[in-house]
Design a protein around this nucleic acid. Structure first.
Length: 662
DNA sequence: CTGGGGACGGGGCCC
DNA sequence: GGGGCCCCGTCCCCA
């Protein structure tokens, strides 16, 4: 994929996870706080560094206050290990994953072809050299790039790396080639603007909006003088991976200059249509609103890590920074006016009070604003672009002239249904689907300004607000007790009506709330399960469950391979509400229907393939359950279908079981 | 252990 | 398309 054009990446990529906003008030440098929420820092133990040659151009990630988190990302040694490719789009640099990146897997970056050529294509003989500096003058946060590696086959032996007790790596300078320390690292800063300046003879430096950077000062190498350096790529462009002269660290300051292809007067627009963050066809997929702190600030170090996908209720660490600081991923500071906010992307922090302080969402960005600031740092969402491919796919299905939508369309009873491409739920209205998609994305755009809780729907936030106001708008007409929600009032009304819709099948105890029945059922231990297997003594609530057990799940039955997952599923179904509603005289078809209902509910969100396999499996199991031959007196091998499916099915161990388990 | 209330999530429907 | 409203369901807490 490194041969892809940059437009190919834009068209084919699935998610864009932008850098986090790095507020200047944060106490940590930008290089630490700008890391996207799905990534984490880890120290690399592979710190071989190579250098050589002479400085002409280089980019610099030296200053952690000016560079961003990419300074910590190492370059790939070979195509095989590369999982990230850098491309430039207008003034923005995007890093596309080109293969799945597993948790704890290190990001290793290289360039797209175009980007690489733009970096150095016209200066193939760029020599390079990296900064070093006088350590005594090193500011606290101006650090070497200890985690950068630039590994090639020929140079592995050249550098020895040591790590001091405080974790900061130091390189044995004797092993390095003749690097020369600059007077100051910042004097050496070079990014695209360097090249542009060079090529354009400094005619329009202000037009490019980049960070003005002085030309790097070339100095003759001084032996033994270097303890600060940047990696040393290879000088020629004969292969994409070995010979690109520049590395990317340090490109990621605000305001990268337009790349040299652009004439200076060209507006700073993407060279091709970049999906705007608010393109209606592409719902924004938000990562959870809490942001990981830099691990160095964690209460304990070492193996302690965080992930960007932590559930908000499982936040292990407080936000970094002053106590008043919001989690860094929140795009705005809290409004001093109180009230509630809708977190919208790409909006500057509002300073004024909304027209209606309470429950007023923020204004949406206008098109001009968007086009003026296409930077990914301006919006917080991971934009799901996978729907782009869905779009074209279904546009074809719907035929020419049909308004293409990024969602699969179905027709049910003459009505169009919009199907969620994640869980396959269908909705009668597209807007409902869009709200539903927040369930998958984790986006919770409506945040309570009083307690920081956030919600997927404004109505939920409005209801939540009653918690703070104490308002209880719903009154019981019988006892005049008041409730904050209609649901709770309705539950309450059962007390007056005597309605108890939830009944225990074992003891006939009835309850007004389902949760009470669930709790109650836990009381029924195995001895209360009337249907017991004579071979293994396992007991079941339902006779058909015992039949199914004997038909394929009993470990004591000879000749029957027992799949533990199937056994567990059968037990779960036996204890499910779907099984509860069946009578013991239920027909095979009724049991099968109940199994399907239970599956549909239980496997919601599972992988499609797993759902399909599980469905096949459970149907086979249902056959066993209803097999008249499956009696305690006649054990035999399970039906063939069951055996076959049981060997291939893969079911996730769900951490949370909706159905009441035992 | 039961019962009652509080809070919240998801989705349908209307405007 | 999006907001508002409503309903249903679920979970948690506590007496």
């Amino acid at each position: 994929m490194s041969r892809w054009r940059e437009v190919d990446f834009v068209l084919n990529c699935t998610y864009i996870v932008p850098d986090q906003v790095s507020d200047p008030s944060f106490r940590l440098p930008r290089a630490m706080t700008s890391i996207p929420r799905n990534l984490t820092f880890q120290h690399s133990t592979d710190n071989e560094i190579y250098s050589g040659g002479q400085l002409q151009n280089f980019v610099d990630g030296y200053d952690v206050h000016r560079s961003n988190w990419m300074r910590y990302v190492n370059p790939a040694r070979a195509l095989a290990e590369q999982n990230l490719v850098a491309c430039q789009n207008g003034r923005d640099i995007y890093f596309y994953t080109i293969r799945p990146v597993e948790p704890s897997q290190e990001l290793l970056v290289w360039y797209s072809q175009e980007f690489a050529q733009r970096l150095c294509g016209q200066q193939v003989d760029i020599k390079q050299k990296y900064t070093s500096s006088d350590e005594d003058r090193e500011p606290e946060y101006k650090q070497p790039l200890p985690q950068q590696t630039w590994l090639t086959d020929r140079t592995k032996e050249e550098v020895k790396e040591e790590r001091e007790e405080d974790g900061e790596e130091n390189i044995d300078v004797e092993m390095l080639e003749r690097d020369t320390p600059p007077v100051t690292p910042d004097d050496q800063i070079m990014d695209f603007s360097k090249k542009v300046e060079k090529e354009e003879s400094n005619r329009h430096p202000e037009d490019r909006g980049g960070v003005p950077s002085p030309k790097p000062e070339h100095r003759e190498p001084g032996p033994g003088s270097s303890r600060r350096y940047l990696p040393d790529p290879h000088p020629a462009l004969t292969s994409q991976h070995r010979n690109l002269p520049l590395h990317l660290h340090g490109l990621y300051r605000e305001g990268v200059s337009p790349y040299p292809i652009y004439p200076p007067s060209r507006p700073l627009q993407p060279s091709y249509p970049l999906l705007p963050p608010y393109a209606p066809h592409y719902p924004r997929l938000l990562l959870p609103s809490y942001s990981p702190p830099f691990p160095g600030m964690l209460p304990s170090r070492g193996s302690l890590r965080y992930g960007g996908y932590l559930a908000t209720d499982g936040l292990p660490y407080p936000p970094v920074g002053p106590p008043a600081l919001l989690p860094v991923s929140l795009p705005y500071p809290p409004s001093s006016q109180g009230g509630l906010k809708e977190l919208k992307a790409n909006v500057s922090p509002p300073r004024g009070a909304p027209a209606t302080p309470e429950l007023s969402p923020l204004p949406k960005p206008d098109a001009q604003h968007r086009s003026a600031e296409p930077s990914p740092s301006g919006f917080e969402e991971a934009v799901n672009l996978s729907l782009a491919t869905m779009k074209s796919k279904h546009a074809t299905r719907n035929g020419p002239g049909h308004k293409s939508l990024p969602y699969p369309l179905q027709k049910q009873n003459g009505k169009i249904k919009y199907e969620c491409n994640i869980c396959s739920k269908t909705f009668g209205q597209l807007s409902n689907l869009k709200v539903h998609l927040r369930v998958h994305s984790g986006e919770r755009p409506f945040q309570c300004n009083l307690c920081r809780k956030s919600f997927t729907q404004l109505a939920h936030l409005q209801k939540h607000h009653l918690v703070h106001t104490g308002e209880k708008p719903h009154e019981c007409t019988v006892c005049h007790k008041r409730f904050s929600s209609t649901s709770n009032l309705k539950t309450h009304l059962r007390l007056h009506s005597g309605e108890k819709p939830y009944q225990c099948k074992l003891c006939n105890t009835k309850f007004t709330q389902y949760i009470h029945l669930k709790l109650h059922r836990r009381l029924h231990s195995g001895r209360d399960r009337p249907h017991r297997c004579p071979l293994c003594a396992q007991a079941f609530f339902h006779r058909f469950s015992l039949r199914g057990h004997q038909g394929g799940c009993c470990p004591a039955a000879a000749g029957a391979p027992v799949d533990g997952r199937v056994k567990q599923m059968a037990e779960r179904f036996d204890a499910s509400q779907e099984a509860d509603v069946l009578t013991e005289a239920a027909t095979a078809a009724e049991v099968e229907e109940a199994v399907e209902r239970w599956l549909e509910r239980t496997l919601e969100g599972e992988e499609k393939e797993d759902q399909r396999e599980a469905t096949l499996l459970l149907k086979a199991l249902t056959v066993a359950m209803n097999s008249p031959a499956a009696t305690p007196a006649s054990h035999h091998s399970p039906p063939l279908a069951y055996q076959e499916r049981a060997s291939v099915v893969h079911l996730h161990q769900r951490p949370r079981v909706k159905t009441e388990g035992q």
